[in-house]
Write a protein that binds this DNA or RNA. Structure first.
Lengths: 190, 190
DNA sequence: CTTCGCTATATAAATCTTGACATAGTGGTT
DNA sequence: AACCACTATGTCAAGATTTATATAGCGAAG
């Protein structure tokens, strides 16, 4: 159950449900995803449990909103999660599940098309991550190793995101090459 | 909804529920995870829907089992999933969510301990992946680019798994170094 | 003054997932 | 004969997640 703890973590500074959704899109997309329809009921539940506290607030840009902040109890719950050790062995990568079964497509062309589409997506995502990084670096002279705690650890996740996405783009290229070369070889034998 | 399709894919060859669980542990762990309590009801549901067909079979090593195989309808459903494009933007990596909030621990020592534990896990996982790879290569002269379709695409997912896990181990080391160096710097300033 | 895009919150139904529990056969060891 | 590890199948309740739907305020552009 990680979403609860992610929300608890984000609410060390005040956020509305809508704000949280934007954090997921912007900063957390490398490792988690949540819909508004999941966030709003969760906020209500966490408030009932006394893990967060909400208050009404004005928006500079839209209708009034309700912002939440984690309580002392919420912070304890967050630390408990961090202390129980890394959550591993439950990673989910939908596109890899698909690659595993690409042989079930009718021919290799479709597999190549799949890999190409994946590469396009990953290249776009890489560009976004690189933009975030250079913007961050340009605006904050402390980047990356003199950042305050609250930004240093997020920067670590960005660093791994970049590594993984670069590796994935490379792998898409290699895979496309390998699929094509293999097909040529198989055609010759046939 | 990927589990349904993963099971459909695995059932191009006959498997029992228990067999499937072992596939998840052995081959699919890089990108998906499922419990037996999820697998057994799903098999019943897929059989009702006519996507798979089951029959009783003997086990060489335990009690009788029920093995399933995908039907023509099931194969169509699988192909539909593969044709709708790569599933992206929903990746889940629990340990990265935790890293994002490591600042909420009481001190950097605990963060270092977390990263060290993560590195130990990832190193172990890397060793297992490398063992799978070298065993596969040693037993099949066709490895990796002359493998039949049904093994070639799984091999691609192994290749990316290796890349990503290696990147993660490196990143753990770098992160530990960075956390420690940063602490020394902050202590000097204080 | 209407429409559009964005901000903002929420509910309902359906489905998916986890964790705990229950049962039982098989083969080997003590 | 008792025990253990492993094989094998399942149920149940609680919790998590997705998809669809509904409502409404705000500011800018036409």
């Amino acid at each position: 159950m990680s979403l609860k703890h992610i929300v608890l973590g984000l609410l060390s500074t005040p956020h509305s449900g809508y704000d949280l959704k934007k954090e997921f899109e912007y900063s957390l997309k490398n490792f988690w995803h949540a819909e508004l329809s999941q966030i709003y009921p969760l906020l209500q539940k966490l408030e009932e449990e006394g893990l967060i506290a909400g208050r009404e607030a004005a928006s500079e840009i839209g209708p009034r909103k309700r912002v939440y902040k984690s309580t002392a109890k919420g912070k304890r719950e967050l630390r408990a999660w961090l202390t129980e050790g890394p959550t591993v062995g439950t990673e989910r990568v939908g596109y890899l599940a698909q690659v595993y079964f690409l042989a079930d497509l009718d021919n290799d062309d479709e597999a190549v098309r799949f890999m190409q589409e994946l590469k396009d997506y990953m290249s776009g995502w890489l560009a976004k991550l690189e933009a975030i990084e250079s913007e961050w670096g340009a605006n904050d002279p402390r980047y990356p190793d003199e950042l305050p705690d609250g930004e240093f650890y997020p920067q670590l996740t960005l660093a791994l995101g970049l590594k993984k996405v670069r590796a994935t783009v490379e792998w898409c290229d290699e895979s496309i090459r390998r699929i094509k070369a293999r097909r040529r070889r198989l055609e010759k034998t046939a």
